[in-house]
Design a binder for these strands. Structure first.
Lengths: 228, 228
DNA sequence: TATTTAATGTCGACG
DNA sequence: CGTCGACGTTAAATA
C-alpha cells in the first residue's frame, strides 16, 4: 500500500466521463493496482477511483508534470492523474487482511423469524424457509391459526420494491391449487423499518406489515438456547 | 486529514455488529470526524468506517493499548479501534475540494432522447419531458405516427424495477380520459442495457423495449449543432 | 462465469 | 428533514 498526498487533477473516462480540478488530495495505491482518490470530506466513497484488476503506468506529461495512467484490465476505463506537487509519499506492507465478520444482516433476520414466526402474527407456524416458486424463493411460507397459507417477505429496510416482489409471489401462489384449496394466500411484509410509501402500497394490496425487533428476537433465541 | 498505519482490531455496533481481527491496516481520519479503515485490497469500500457527522475520542484501554472510540452524532452507531502498534502517523491540510464534474448519466440520456425520440420508434414525436402524474413524472410523453400517446421510461441499466415503475405509470395514464380518448397509452422501456428478466416482464405486459446507444445519440446531437 | 439480490450502501434532488 | 431514485453503485451468493 502506497499513500501519496499531492496537488493533482484527475480525468476519468469509462462508463461516464468525469473531471477533478487541481487540488490537494490523498492518493491510495493498493497492492492489487487499484487507486483511490480521497478528499478531506464526503463519506467513505472516494472522489474518483479505479477498481482492480487494473494497472498503473507512471510517466511524464508533455509539460513535464508527473502523470499516472491507470487502466482497467477488463474494460477500457481509464483514469489519468496529473501531479503538480507531491507533499507526501510512503509505502507500507500490510499483508493479507483476515476480513470482516458480520452479524445482523437479512439472512440472520430470516433465520430468527423462521425460529419465531408467531412474532409476525398470532398462531403463525413455519411450513418452509426459501419456498421455491417459478420466479424465485419466498422467504418464509407459513400457515396461520386457521390453516391458511401465509407468504412472508423479509427485508432489513422495507421499501416499495419489497412490496412489489411479495405481490408477484402472491399473484403466482394464488394460482397454485395445492395452496389455494383452503383459501387464498395472504402476505406479510416484515422488516426492521418500513418506509411510508411501502406501507401504503402494501396496505392498499391487502398485505400486512410487521415491524421486526432484531434485538428482541435475538434475546428470545438466546433464552431458548440457554435451556439446552 | 490524518493518516495512520497501525496494527489494530476494530468492533462496530450499529445497524449491525461487525468485528475485524488484529491486523495491519490504514486508518484515514478526515477533518469532519469520519474514519475509514482500509486494507491493502478489496475495492474502494473500506473494511469498516464511520460516516460523518461523528466524533473521535482517543483514550487508553484497560490493558494499556490506545483505544479510539468513534460515535455517530445522530444515531448510536459506535466504532471501537484498539491499537497495538502505530507504524505511521501524519496529518495534512487538504483544504476544501472543488468536487467532481460528471457527464453521461441518466439525465443526459433523457436530454438526448428528448431531442431524438424517433430513435425509439419510427414516427415518435415528443409531447413533453417529465410529464407529471400523481405518482411522479414520466420521463418522456410522446405521440406515435397514429397520434396515440406513448409513455417512455428511461434507465441507464434496465432492470425489473424500471418495468414496475413504467407499469404503474401506464395503469394510471390509461385511466386519464384526456389521453385515452384516442386509444390506450403504450409504453416503451428504454435503456443502454436491458436485463433478461426485465425484458421478459416488459414483453409480458405489452411494453416495448428499446436499446439506447449513448455514443450514437451524442454523435447525432453534435452533428446537429454543427449546422448552426 | 453470469445473474440476481442485499447493502452499515452513498449521493443528490425535491417536497 | 425525510423520501425517492440513480449510481462508474459494490459485493456476495447462487445458478
Amino acid at each position: 500500500m502506497r499513500i501519496v498526498v499531492a496537488r493533482c487533477q484527475v480525468d476519468y473516462a469509462g462508463r461516464l466521463t468525469a473531471h477533478l480540478p487541481l487540488a490537494t488530495r490523498v492518493l491510495m495505491l493498493k497492492s492489487d493496482g487499484s487507486v483511490l482518490i480521497h478528499s478531506d470530506g464526503g463519506s467513505y466513497k472516494p472522489l474518483n477511483w479505479m477498481s482492480p484488476p487494473c494497472t498503473v503506468r507512471e510517466g511524464v506529461a508533455e509539460d513535464g508534470r508527473a502523470e499516472w495512467l491507470v487502466s482497467a484490465t477488463k474494460s477500457d476505463d481509464t483514469l489519468r492523474i496529473l501531479i503538480d506537487e507531491v507533499l507526501h509519499d510512503t509505502s507500507h506492507d500490510l499483508g493479507v487482511d483476515p476480513g470482516l465478520q458480520k452479524d445482523g444482516v437479512e439472512k440472520h433476520l430470516q433465520e430468527l423469524l423462521a425460529e419465531h414466526p408467531a412474532t409476525l402474527a398470532d398462531g403463525l407456524t413455519l411450513v418452509r424457509r426459501e419456498y421455491m416458486t417459478a420466479i424465485g424463493p419466498v422467504d418464509l411460507m407459513c400457515r396461520d391459526a386457521e390453516g391458511l397459507s401465509v407468504a412472508v417477505e423479509i427485508k432489513r429496510r422495507g421499501e416499495i420494491d419489497g412490496v412489489e416482489q411479495l405481490t408477484r409471489y402472491l399473484d403466482l401462489l394464488n394460482r397454485d391449487p395445492a395452496l389455494t384449496r383452503k383459501g387464498s394466500v395472504r402476505g406479510i411484509f416484515a422488516a426492521q423499518e418500513i418506509k411510508p410509501q411501502a406501507r401504503v402500497l402494501a396496505t392498499d394490496r391487502g398485505i400486512a406489515c410487521a415491524l421486526v425487533d432484531y434485538d428482541a428476537l435475538r434475546g428470545m433465541d438466546d433464552a431458548e438456547h440457554r435451556l439446552f
